[in-house]
């Protein structure tokens, strides 16, 4: 049986991340570079600049005045955080050409962005230092699915049928049909892109966060965010219900259930706008 990474072979658009993101990574990780250097790299790409400014000016950030320049955005959001947001908006554009199969890409991104918004809100409650990292982890958690839609539409259809008949979660049906599920494909993609281990682990283990070795909190937060968004039914990545909760993940998140009311309200308020800003113009 094929391995998850085999599905990546021959998918031309995802072979590598856009050059601007790679240049940005090397500047951010270079201790000699300044915020101005980071700003110059972003400014090379007017589309990226416009998307980043729209994003940091959206209600999710709630800044009292308008942020007009990348330099200003860096000073408020931080370089590492802006790099993560640049990754978020770059990845979506790579997938703009995926044809709709079992779910539309609009619905897929609606779900993915909402999980990002929710993971970010949960991380903020836990006072995590870089909440944008959680936004990206949530955004990318199901990124293996569009690869499967592209590369193995017949098997995907068989998995959907199996989940529909049996009532099992779609990731279990994928496991039965493929011998792996979308989380393994997503992990292989993030590995190909050489993205940080915290992102790779949270994508790989979002259905079984107890298996995460190095970043259990990240995987647990993405799992819980996915639960919340599936329950709210904001878009779908193919899953038709709310899979069982990994109870250890909710314990690892270590927040009282009373926060859920605010988290659901925040997701309701911000997910649509965030989707419009970072996903819809890419799909057009």
């Amino acid at each position: 049986m094929a391995r998850a990474s085999d599905l990546l072979k021959g998918v031309v658009n995802v072979a590598s991340l856009p050059g601007v993101y790679l240049r940005l990574s090397s500047v951010v990780s270079d201790p000699r570079s300044s915020a101005a250097d980071v700003g110059r790299v972003i400014a090379e790409d007017p589309g990226l600049t416009a998307r980043l400014l729209k994003l940091v000016n959206s209600a999710m950030y709630g800044f009292p005045s308008k942020i007009e320049t990348v330099t200003h955005a860096i000073s408020i959001v931080g370089t590492a955080q802006l790099q993560d947001l640049a990754l978020a908006t770059s990845v979506i554009r790579l997938f703009a050409k995926v044809p709709p199969t079992m779910v539309s890409m609009a619905s897929f991104w609606r779900h993915s962005v909402a999980v990002g918004v929710t993971a970010r809100a949960l991380a903020a409650r836990r006072r995590e230092p870089n909440v944008e990292r959680f936004f990206v982890a949530g955004l990318l958690h199901d990124i293996g699915r569009p690869i499967m839609f592209l590369q193995a539409p017949d098997e995907v259809q068989a998995a959907f049928a199996r989940a529909g008949e049996s009532g099992m979660p779609l990731y279990e049906a994928e496991q039965a049909v493929f011998g792996f599920d979308h989380s393994h494909v997503g992990h292989a993609l993030l590995e190909l892109w050489k993205l940080p281990a915290s992102l790779r682990e949270s994508v790989q283990h979002h259905h079984h966060p107890e298996r995460a070795q190095r970043f259990p909190a990240e995987a647990a937060i993405v799992h819980v965010a996915d639960q919340i968004v599936n329950a709210m039914h904001l878009g779908t990545s193919g899953e038709q219900g709310v899979p069982p909760l990994a109870t250890a993940a909710w314990e690892a998140v270590a927040l009282p259930v009373t926060v859920l009311e605010d988290i659901v309200a925040e997701t309701e308020r911000h997910a649509e706008a965030a989707t419009r800003v970072i996903a819809l113009d890419a799909a057009a």
Binding site: G167, P169, V224, Q240, G241, V242, P243, L260
Partner: peptide
Amino acid sequence: RFRGDVAHPF
């Protein structure tokens, strides 16, 4: 729509 244990507090 909820496949898991709906009695869990979460």
